Computed example of a mutant assay.
Amino acid sequence: MLDIRRIYYEAAAAELPRGKEVLARFPEATLVEVESHNRIPELYGDESNVNRWVRIKQEALVLGVKKSLSARPNGRSADFIAPSTANGCAMSCAYCYVPRHKGYSNPITVFANIDKISGYVQRHAARQGVKPAGNECDPVAWVYDIGENSDCSVDALLSDNVRDLVELFRWIPTAKASFATKYVNRDLLDWDPQGRTRVRFSLMPQADAKLLDIRTSPIAERIAAIDDFVAAGYEVHVNFSPVVVRDGWLEAWSELFDQLDAGIGDAARQQLACEVIFLTHNRDLHEVNLGWHPKAEELLWRPELQQPKRSQNGSWNVRYRTGSKGHYVQALTDLIAERIPYCRVRYAF
Rank of each mutant, 00 (worst) to 15 (best):
M1V: 02
D3W: 01
I4R: 15
R5H: 00
A11K: 14
K20T: 01
V32W: 02
H37S: 15
I40A: 14
I40W: 08
I40L: 12
D46M: 00
S48T: 00
V54L: 15
K57R: 15
L61A: 09
V62A: 06
L69P: 11
S70A: 12
N74R: 11
N74T: 01
S77C: 15
I81T: 02
P83M: 03
N87P: 00
M91S: 14
C93Q: 09
P99R: 08
P99V: 07
N106R: 13
N113H: 05
D115S: 15
I117Q: 01
S118I: 09
V121S: 04
V130I: 12
A133E: 04
N135H: 02
P139T: 05
W142P: 10
V143Q: 11
V143D: 06
S159K: 06
D160S: 15
D160Y: 08
V162R: 05
R163K: 15
E167A: 12
F169S: 11
S178C: 15
F179Q: 10
Y183T: 13
R186G: 04
L189E: 04
D190M: 14
D190C: 14
G195R: 12
S202W: 03
M204L: 05
Q206V: 12
L211I: 08
R215F: 03
P218F: 03
I226D: 03
D228Y: 03
A231Y: 01
E251F: 03
E251G: 12
W253M: 06
E255N: 13
L260E: 05
A262P: 02
I264V: 10
Q271F: 02
A273Q: 14
L279W: 08
L279G: 09
N282I: 00
R283Q: 15
D284R: 14
L300W: 04
R302V: 05
Q306V: 01
R310M: 02
R310K: 12
N313K: 02
G314M: 12
S315D: 07
S315P: 00
R321I: 06
S324G: 07
K325L: 12
G326I: 07
L332H: 10
I340A: 08
P341T: 02
Y342P: 02
R344E: 05
A348N: 06
A348Q: 06
